[in-house]
Write a protein that binds this DNA or RNA. Sequence first.
DNA 1: GGTGAGTTATGAACGATGTTCAATATTTTT
DNA 2: AAAAATATTGAACATCGTTCATAACTCACC
Lengths: 209, 209
Amino acid sequence: MARRSDHSREELFQMMVAAARRIIAAEGVGGLTARKVAKAVGYSPGSIYNVFKNLDDLIVQVNAETLDLLIADFGAISLSGRPEADLPVIVEHYLAFEEAHPNLWSALFDYNLKEGSHWPDWYFGKIEQLFTMAEAAVVPIYGDAPGRESRIAIQTLWAGLHGITSLARSGSLGIVADATTRSMAHHLTATYLAGMIEEKGAGATKAPL
Amino acid sequence: MARRSDHSREELFQMMVAAARRIIAAEGVGGLTARKVAKAVGYSPGSIYNVFKNLDDLIVQVNAETLDLLIADFGAISLSGRPEADLPVIVEHYLAFEEAHPNLWSALFDYNLKEGSHWPDWYFGKIEQLFTMAEAAVVPIYGDAPGRESRIAIQTLWAGLHGITSLARSGSLGIVADATTRSMAHHLTATYLAGMIEEKGAGATKAPL
DNA sequence: GGTGAGTTATGAACGATGTTCAATATTTTT
DNA sequence: AAAAATATTGAACATCGTTCATAACTCACC
């Protein structure tokens, strides 16, 4: 058999990523199989390896789309300029997105590539983009141009949220209900924010907001 | 073949857990294989399933030992009663343990059981124990008997640390160096602690420490 | 239209994996 | 000594990711 030319290379790429996305969303990244993807797009298992280096490569492509979705979601947020109002909104978007696409989220942040594969550079570019958007909510506190302190604060807060939701997913920690996760996330945000303001005030004295 | 009785059931259990622990420590939980464990203890693959329900069950046993080690480590900490001094010490123990046993740590907190397996109850008991120990560092702030608020605070902080180290391990986030992980962890702790004190002060007015 | 070169999908094959279970070798009981 | 009970085995099964010689197709050119 060969060269059906039913689909161009580009079309095949799209079809396979879409199929993989559907499988991951339905069964989790652990349920993704070369043979399943092949069957879903009507090609043979070997064909996947004409388009992707390996399964990890395919997962990376799915994750890229998920990141774009998340970026679009964050883009729709309009900030008030008051961190104590804006940060909870961002956190809520974070939580809502994770709840809406739990398996895609897991593939994005829980999955570890097998030895030999690495996240491509543009991957970090997208994550940077995400941080920059969130950072805007926190800039009023530090007053500086989007730079050092506010970036660290957002990274830390992001990691904290990740920890809460990740432990909730794995079932460790005492967390059971979604409500607990949500309240812990908002508690962390509020407390951390209070700490930021407090420590900033203790340092260089700035004009109040 | 059969019934060598070279080892009792209990001995076999110990040997296999020890072998699994060595393999995980050396190659990560992904490198753990029934056949590898079998070869390491000089038995056949099938024998593992006479002692353990499946590989996940074996991993749970290894993790239990790791938890005990962590509990012992935490037990050696003596507190001063000043949270701003004690919390960083606990965080340092957390980080040091993770750095000393990265693969065992990963098996403990990153690994997700396959569908059908669940963490046993005593597992959560050990985690509770850990939290109770850490909680002591924070009780002076809330003044209450080890109960609601201080427990939530410790859970949240723990989750936050988990998030930082977990993202660092997976390579996501901009984190590269260990130093960055460490500084982010301490930054989170300090800021969160400042927030706790600040919010507590804003609520019911208590005698200062 | 035919022919040959170039390309692409194939699916059988390989070496793994977790897990099962009839068969067997040993011990214990009678 | 014979029989019952038990522990260990390792071949077998289904599945996995991945490879690659082969076959089937397309296309440019004569």
